[in-house]
Every structure is written in C-alpha cells, then in structure tokens.
Simulated assay, not measured.
Amino acid sequence: MNIGLTGGIATGKSTVSSLLVKKGALLVDADAIARDVMLPGQPVLTAVTNFFGQAILQADGTLDRKKLGNIVFNDKEALKALNDISHPEIRKQLNERMKELEKLNPETLIVIDIPLLIESGLQSMFEQVLVVYVPRDIQKLRLMQRDSLSADEAEARLHAQMDIEVKKTMADLVIDNSDSLATTEQQVNELWLQLGQL
C-alpha cells in the first residue's frame, strides 16, 4: 500500500516520515529527488539557469538555493516557471521509484513525501493522502527559527503555498504535529495500526 505524505513548509513532514520509516515503511522523498535534479550537469538545472540566469549559481556551479528562493517566493510567475521546468522530471522519477518499491515490497507501506502534492493535483497517484498539520502561527514561528528568516520572509514563503487549513480539509488522514514529539509519535503509532501494518 502507498500513502502520499504532504503538509506545509515547516509543519514537520520529515519528522513524521522518519517515524514511519522507523516503524518499517519505505520512503520516497520528493525533496531529495528535487535536490538531485538540481545538481550540476543535470538537464533541469541547466534549464532553470537558462531561465533565471547565472546569478542563481554559486562559484562552483551549484545552485544557490537561497538566491533562487528569494526570487520565486516573491514572484508567483517565477515560482510557476520554476515548477513548470522542474516538476515533470521530479514526478517521473517519483513514479518510477514508487513503482519499483511496490514491486519489490508488495506488503510494505510506501510513503511518498511530496510538499506540493495537493497543489500539483497528484492525489490520484496514492491510495490515501496524509497531511502533517500545525496551525499557521506555529508554522510561521518554526519556519523563522529553522531557516533564520524574518517575519516578512517567512510570510512570503507561507503565502506562496496553499494554506495549511485548506490542505487539512483535503486529507484522508491528518497528523497534528503542533505538540511534543511524543504526541506526534503516538499518532504515528495509531496510524500504523489503522493502516493494518503490524
């Protein structure tokens, strides 16, 4: 069985996915694939650089994520352009990895962690969609702390994504990650049993 795991920026998707992996699930991480397709020599990075210019690269030819982030999180058209360039390849690799894992491990829960799962309309790829949720004020605070952002920078990033309250209503399953790690772990344990994983 597979589930698509999503949430908002800084809601704790990685925390929940790692707890599920600890229980025995297998993980396909869209962020890891997104980083891979942006490595030097990859066609996606070349296309992104052609669109946004050499200024988004560091001296060694690697992507300057902060610079690109500052561009796309303040300009909806720029963000759309980046997604249009990168998402088809990320989606293709996600699908290939998911199918391969399902074929090799038919009895194991496969978790596919995709930050923009709902925005990209990918729900039909999965048996169920799990949203990792925290209220927006906690989300903003965690984002500021995690990425050393100002309130305005954090707000711009949150504004660029679908509101977490909306995502929550579109989920088959919800894990509320606004309390302690122990509380989140308890919810993961209950979910594990609910999904019939022993």
Rank of each mutant, 00 (worst) to 15 (best):
M1W: 07
N2L: 15
I3L: 14
G4K: 03
G4Y: 09
G8H: 03
I9V: 11
K13Q: 10
T15A: 15
S17H: 03
L19N: 09
A25D: 08
A25N: 05
A25P: 08
P40V: 05
Q42P: 00
P43R: 06
L45V: 03
L45C: 02
F52E: 10
F52P: 03
I56C: 11
I56L: 11
I56N: 05
L57A: 13
T62I: 10
L63C: 00
D64Q: 06
K66A: 11
G69H: 10
N74C: 02
K76V: 12
E77R: 04
A81R: 02
I85Q: 02
I85H: 04
H87V: 06
I90Q: 09
R91K: 13
M98S: 15
M98Y: 13
K99A: 15
L101W: 13
N105E: 14
P106R: 11
I112Y: 10
D113V: 07
P115I: 12
L116T: 02
L117C: 01
S120Y: 09
G121L: 11
L122N: 06
L122T: 03
L122S: 03
Q123Y: 13
Q128C: 06
V129Q: 13
Y133Q: 02
V134D: 08
V134R: 09
R136G: 09
I138T: 08
K140Y: 00
L141M: 08
R142D: 06
R142A: 00
R142V: 08
S150W: 00
D152M: 14
E155S: 11
R157Q: 04
R157T: 07
H159V: 01
H159L: 11
M162A: 03
M162I: 01
V166P: 08
K167A: 04
A171H: 08
D176P: 06
L181S: 01
E185S: 04
E185A: 04
E185G: 00
E185F: 03
Q186P: 03
Q186W: 14
Q186Y: 13
N189S: 15
G196L: 14
